[in-house]
Simulated assay, not measured.
Amino acid sequence: MTNTEPHSPTGGELYVPKGAAANARYTVDIDPKLAGWTHSSLRIVELEAGGTHTFTTGESEWIVLPLHGGCTVQTGTDEFQLLGRESVFASVTDFAYVPRDARVQIASGAGGRFALAGAKCERRLPARYGPAPEVPTEVRGSGTCTRHVRNFASADAFDCDKLIAVEVITPGGNWSSYPPHKHDEHRPGEEAELEEIYYFEIDGPNGFGYQRVFPSREGGSDVLAEVRSGDAVLVPDGWHGPSIAQPGHAMYYLNVMAGPGGTREWRICFHPDHTEGYR
Rank of each mutant, 00 (worst) to 15 (best):
P6V: 00
H7V: 07
G12C: 07
Y15W: 15
V16A: 04
V16P: 00
P17Q: 12
R25K: 10
Y26N: 14
T27D: 02
T27A: 09
T27Y: 03
T27I: 14
T27S: 15
I30F: 01
P32V: 08
K33S: 12
T38H: 15
S40G: 06
I44Y: 09
E46W: 05
L47A: 04
E48K: 13
G50K: 15
G50T: 03
T56E: 12
T56W: 04
E59Q: 12
S60D: 12
I63F: 01
V64T: 04
L65T: 05
L65D: 07
P66M: 02
P66G: 00
L67F: 06
H68F: 11
G70Q: 04
C71R: 09
V73F: 10
T77Y: 10
D78W: 03
D78K: 12
D78C: 06
E79M: 10
L82M: 10
E86D: 13
V88L: 07
V88I: 08
S91Y: 05
V92A: 13
T93Y: 10
T93G: 05
D94I: 06
A96G: 09
A96P: 07
P99V: 04
A102F: 07
R103S: 14
I106H: 01
A107N: 10
G109D: 09
A110L: 11
A110G: 02
A110S: 15
G111E: 00
G112R: 11
R113E: 10
A115E: 00
L116F: 04
C121K: 11
E122P: 02
R124Y: 01
P126C: 09
A127E: 00
G130L: 08
A132Y: 03
P133W: 14
P136K: 13
T137G: 06
G141Y: 04
T144V: 15
C145Q: 15
R147T: 05
V149S: 07
A153T: 01
A157C: 13
F158C: 04
F158P: 00
C160A: 12
C160H: 11
C160D: 02
C160F: 12
D161S: 06
V168E: 06
V168P: 01
N174Q: 10
W175R: 11
S176L: 03
Y178M: 02
P179H: 00
P180T: 01
H181A: 10
K182N: 02
K182S: 08
H183F: 09
D184K: 10
D184W: 02
H186S: 14
G189A: 07
E193G: 01
E193F: 13
E195S: 00
F200D: 00
D203W: 10
P205Y: 12
P205K: 11
F208C: 06
R212Y: 14
F214Y: 15
S216A: 13
R217D: 07
V223K: 08
V223G: 01
L224Y: 15
A225T: 09
S229L: 05
G230I: 09
A232R: 05
V233S: 02
V235F: 11
P236N: 04
P236T: 07
D237L: 09
H240W: 02
G241K: 08
P242I: 00
I244D: 01
A245S: 07
Q246A: 13
P247R: 14
P247G: 03
P247W: 04
H249E: 11
N255R: 12
G259Q: 06
G262A: 06
G262T: 05
T263S: 14
W266Y: 14
R267V: 04
R267L: 15
C269D: 11
D273I: 02
D273P: 01
H274Y: 15
R279F: 14
